[in-house]
Simulated assay, not measured.
Amino acid sequence: MTGKTHLIGGIIACQAADIFLFQNEGQIGYYAAGLIGALIPDICHTHSKIGRRLPVLSKIVSTLFGHRTFTHSLLFLLLINLLFLYFFPEQEGLRLGFLIGMISHYILDALTVRGIRLLYPATFRFRLARFRTGGVIESILLGVLVLTICFLYIGFQ
């Protein structure tokens, strides 16, 4: 999926979790962390939104792991969670937003032809569908996600 789809997916995932799990307690930091979390798995891709912003780190991660492997895995999700718990133990909202954004990224990339290596280092690719990144189906999905954000905002205020 493209960066804009991941950003919208991160917002909607955080919004849904905020409404249904946290009873509208999410703060701006929670949503900002969700946006960053929705992009961070693509640090392994040098031409992604996050990869272009952090080119040296992106090149290192890409060289070490390749695209949609370690940074798209449960192992990476666990590592990020542990880093948050160790370095920012008081920032529960930021941690949850970041992780929810990452999970939305994983789900969206699992809809693509390439899928993700969710159980890295195992080589199995997890796929929910086989959409092309940047294709017509992604554009339709993006529109549906935007409408869903509006529905959730209006319906649960």
Rank of each mutant, 00 (worst) to 15 (best):
F131Q: 05
N81G: 15
A38F: 01
V113P: 01
L39A: 15
V61C: 06
L83T: 15
I140P: 02
C44F: 03
L118Q: 04
A13K: 01
C14Q: 02
T133E: 09
I36F: 08
C150M: 14
L111W: 05
D42R: 00
P89G: 14
R95A: 08
E138K: 05
Q15Y: 00
S58V: 12
E138P: 00
F88H: 09
Q157C: 05
T112W: 05
S62D: 11
F151Q: 06
N24Y: 13
Q23K: 12
E138L: 07
F76I: 08
G135R: 14
S139I: 05
F87C: 07
L119Q: 14
S58A: 11
R127Y: 06
L83R: 14
G155C: 14
F156H: 13
I11V: 15
L147D: 04
Y153F: 14
H45S: 12
F98Q: 04
N81M: 15
T63W: 11
I12R: 03
I28M: 13
Q91R: 08
F156N: 12
L39I: 11
G51P: 00
K49C: 04
I12S: 04
P41W: 01
A38D: 01
L128F: 07
L75P: 08
S104F: 02
F151V: 13
G134I: 07
L85P: 05
G101V: 07
V136I: 09
R125F: 09
I100K: 05
L21Y: 11
